[in-house]
């Protein structure tokens, strides 16, 4: 078994339009600065996902792109189900999170059956939710930018990861709003920004899970200080803005 960690970004051309590469890069840079070798692989339609993949990153894209990759994605349903079931790490943002849900109901056209990796359904809405968002999670406040026209309906057994304390969020659950759904080490969310560079604590929680599982020694250290310093600065600036005035109104 190799000592490097393998990160796969799926459909980077079709579902990768909101800086989703940044999530890959945050994981990669934080591993490498801790002395762990990383292999990053971009997987498009028809390409195989390597069996020894440690982390799967899915990004965002328009409905047409979602329809364009769904057949290819369905062919991977069994592989993805067992990957998540066995504790593999996965992050899906926006359109890809919707495809991994049970069903997407667009405003126009037929519903799209998802893979059902996550137990929720998606209703596209006329109303857009655009602006900074903050989610209080067990791994700290997750801060980022949301930009979607959707409402998620959580099914039985769905596990929200944290609650929204600023911004709009994607769903309501047990009297509070949420923006991230968790299953094992897999996460579905509408937080972009991209989310991982801005949230080192969450990123490190993911990496701790991955490296522990693999028996690789890794911990953030001095080499991570500049990353954390800029992340702290960015997070503080966003929190000042969020709490300073209403930022949910972007001039459309």
């Amino acid at each position: 078994m190799s000592e490097s960690v393998r990160i796969v970004q799926l459909y980077p051309v079709e579902l990768g339009i909101t800086g989703d590469r940044g999530n890959v890069r945050a994981l990669q840079v934080r591993l490498e600065r801790g002395g762990v070798a990383v292999e990053v692989q971009r997987v498009g339609t028809g390409d195989a996902i390597p069996a020894d993949t440690d982390i799967l990153i899915f990004g965002n894209g328009p409905l047409s792109a979602m329809r364009g990759v769904i057949d290819d994605l369905r062919d991977r349903a069994a592989q993805l189900e067992s990957f998540v079931d066995e504790g593999g790490s996965l992050l899906a943002v926006g359109g890809s999170a919707e495809l991994l849900s049970e069903r997407v109901e667009p405003l126009e056209g037929d519903p799209v059956a998802g893979l059902g990796i996550f137990p929720f359904t998606v209703q596209r809405t006329r109303e857009r939710k655009v602006g900074y968002v903050i989610v209080d999670t067990p791994d700290g406040r997750v801060i980022g930018f949301e930009d979607h026209a959707s409402r998620w309906s959580l099914g039985n057994g769905a596990l929200p990861y944290g609650t929204v304390s600023a911004g709009r969020g994607s769903f309501e659950h047990a009297g509070s709003r949420g923006e991230i759904v968790r299953r094992g080490q897999a996460f579905a969310t509408n937080v972009q920004g991209p989310v991982l560079p801005l949230n080192p604590r969450w990123t490190d929680a993911i990496l701790t899970s991955v490296t522990t599982r693999r028996g690789i020694e890794w911990a953030p250290g001095a080499a991570h200080a500049p990353l954390d310093e800029h992340a702290d600065g960015a997070r503080a600036a966003i929190e000042r803005l969020v709490h300073g005035k209403d930022i949910s109104s972007i001039g459309l």
């Binding site: 940044g22 890069r25 945050a26 840079v29 560079p197 801005l198 500049p226 990353l227 800029h230 992340a231 702290d232 600065g233 960015a234 503080a236 600036a237 803005l241």
Partner: peptide, 13 residues
């Protein structure tokens, strides 16, 4: 205003 977000992406690059 977004200096730190910009610096964060530059640092990652």
């Amino acid at each position: 205003e977004k200096a730190s977000q910009l610096a964060l992406s530059l640092e990652h690059a």
